[in-house]
Simulated assay, not measured.
Amino acid sequence: MDLGISNKVALVTGAGGGLGGAIALALAREGAKVVLADINSAALESVADSVRKAGSEALCLEWNLGDLSVIDTRIGAIEARFGGVDILVNNTGGPPPTPASGQTADLWEKHFRSMVLSVIGITDRALPGMRVKRWGRVVTSASSGVVAPIPGLAISNALRMSLVGWSKTLAKEVGRDGITANLVVPGRIGTDRIRFLDEAKARREGRSVEEVSAESTGSIPLGRYGRPEEYAHAVTFLASEAASYVTGSVMRVDGGLIASV
């Protein structure tokens, strides 16, 4: 299937991580020009090398999403190089495991800026260019915690939940402009983040990481953690011309983990 995104310009935030890097590579393989944004410049260069080997152009932008003051200049650099953003993949890092109570206001505010306000600000800055072209894709990566809150991940559950309401509202506002907005929910995808969470849970409960991972895997109908490229394929579909009639949706990529309909 031709996904119709050859030569489209895709901005992927958090592109130095497991999910972001896989998404960037999947988009590149479909012919998109990929802008890679991450706070880790070394990780960016590694992903950019893979993107170029796939035959696509890559632009690396070192970007701390918590610094909202740089949004305009970063998008401006993309416009100067490629003429604007056609596909925006909002992918942010996760906060540390915490209970719901007893967290400082500073901690909540820090992660609200990097996980929510950055997504809103970057999208707002990219939308005018999409409207001019009457074509655009906004795909926001969240967490299975927005459907079934995950114990011990209170900040993630709460902040990512706010993006569900934002994305759904946005979809209605921009649909007549040829722009879609969708949210993707990963389950247990085998990345460094999931390994970190398994290790943290093992320490809290005095168990081995292997025991925790086995228990988690046992709750997944497919019997395994997902692969980053499997998640990336779903995101790439939503970013494509083939998904032109899909908007305002929440797509689960979780191996059947979430029990609710």
Rank of each mutant, 00 (worst) to 15 (best):
D2A: 13
L3D: 03
G4F: 08
L11T: 04
G16Y: 09
G20F: 12
G21I: 14
A22L: 08
A24V: 07
L25T: 02
A28S: 08
E30N: 11
E30D: 14
S41C: 02
S41W: 00
E45K: 02
E45Y: 11
E45H: 03
A48N: 10
C60S: 06
N64M: 11
V70R: 05
T73M: 09
A77S: 13
A80K: 09
R81V: 07
F82Q: 09
V85Y: 02
V85D: 05
L88N: 01
L88P: 02
G94K: 03
P99I: 04
S101N: 03
A105K: 12
W108P: 03
E109D: 14
H111T: 12
L117I: 05
V119P: 00
I122A: 06
D124E: 01
R125Y: 00
P128C: 03
G129R: 09
K133E: 05
V138Q: 00
S141I: 06
S141Y: 12
G145S: 03
V146N: 08
V147F: 10
N157W: 11
A158P: 10
G165V: 01
G178M: 07
N182W: 11
G187D: 10
F196Q: 15
F196V: 14
L197T: 05
L197W: 15
A200D: 06
E205H: 15
S216D: 15
S219W: 15
P221M: 15
P221F: 13
G223Q: 06
G226L: 04
P228Y: 01
Y231M: 11
A232R: 14
H233E: 02
A234Q: 07
E241C: 13
A242M: 15
A243H: 13
V246Y: 09
S249F: 01
V250A: 13
V250K: 09
A259E: 02
V261Q: 06
